[in-house]
Design a protein around this nucleic acid. Sequence first.
DNA 1: CCCATTGGTTACCTCCGGGTACCTACGCGC
DNA 2: GCGCGTAGGTACCCGGAGGTAACCAATGGG
Lengths: 137, 137
Amino acid sequence: MGNSGKVEANRWEEINAACDALSETEEELTREMVMRLADKWSLWTLAILAEEDGPLRFTRLMERVEGVSQKSLTKTLRALERDGLITRQIFAEVPPRVEYTITALGLELLSHVEPLWNWVARSVPQFQRTRQEFEAR
Amino acid sequence: MGNSGKVEANRWEEINAACDALSETEEELTREMVMRLADKWSLWTLAILAEEDGPLRFTRLMERVEGVSQKSLTKTLRALERDGLITRQIFAEVPPRVEYTITALGLELLSHVEPLWNWVARSVPQFQRTRQEFEAR
DNA sequence: CCCATTGGTTACCTCCGGGTACCTACGCGC
DNA sequence: GCGCGTAGGTACCCGGAGGTAACCAATGGG
């Protein structure tokens, strides 16, 4: 526990070093991005678009991202588009048709999210045990 | 962009498969953990404890985690302790002394957060550019 | 003429994270 | 007896996230 801790701590210092290389506003932007991506719907929506491997219409998307409201989905999609993680293509038809597609950047992001997510998923039993012990304390 | 997209999509399907292997409540727990860790202070606090490579007292911690309020730090620390990411040792002294230490689990978590964080930090210029284009549209 | 469809937008409401301010318990030095 | 310092707890307030429901524009079908 002692020496392995030191190794991990050094790794984390690398992150801090990487952050220091950025200007203050850029570090804030990093923080902002991380927190924005961890909101209720962004990653889920992105994952749906990734597994589809093709464009999806708004209504279709709302069916797949179970439980999301129109309003929240709109907002989420605008934010994802703004950051270049998805594209939004409007067709001048009636009734209107809008297609959303994940970008290369979006797929790259997901590929970096995956290991962390998998680790958390694998560690869930550990967390459950720890919580029970904590509760029973 | 076409075939690399397919590769990434398959990777993401692995995540979904990993999630399906868990019960529904466990999947919710995964989601909950990810979102909890992405809150305003958890990761930051954890990082401070990691770089310290030793115990830290409450007041000390509040100085380092710049901008956190007493209330929020208390809450954050309780949550981290509950999940076994840090330990909390109370000394029966006056004035009271409480020491917080990161656990092996906490360090492991940080090591898995690091690549994602680094990628986001590296991609910040890209995000800035994309946003400017979006704004100017 | 009426209505359904699609992709929103808007008003309204509630919940919760997080901030400030103030309180406590305790033993110490004065 | 009085303040001081530590590690919180508690009450109150504000803003923002996110849900619901109603409305809208344009047009093809009946």
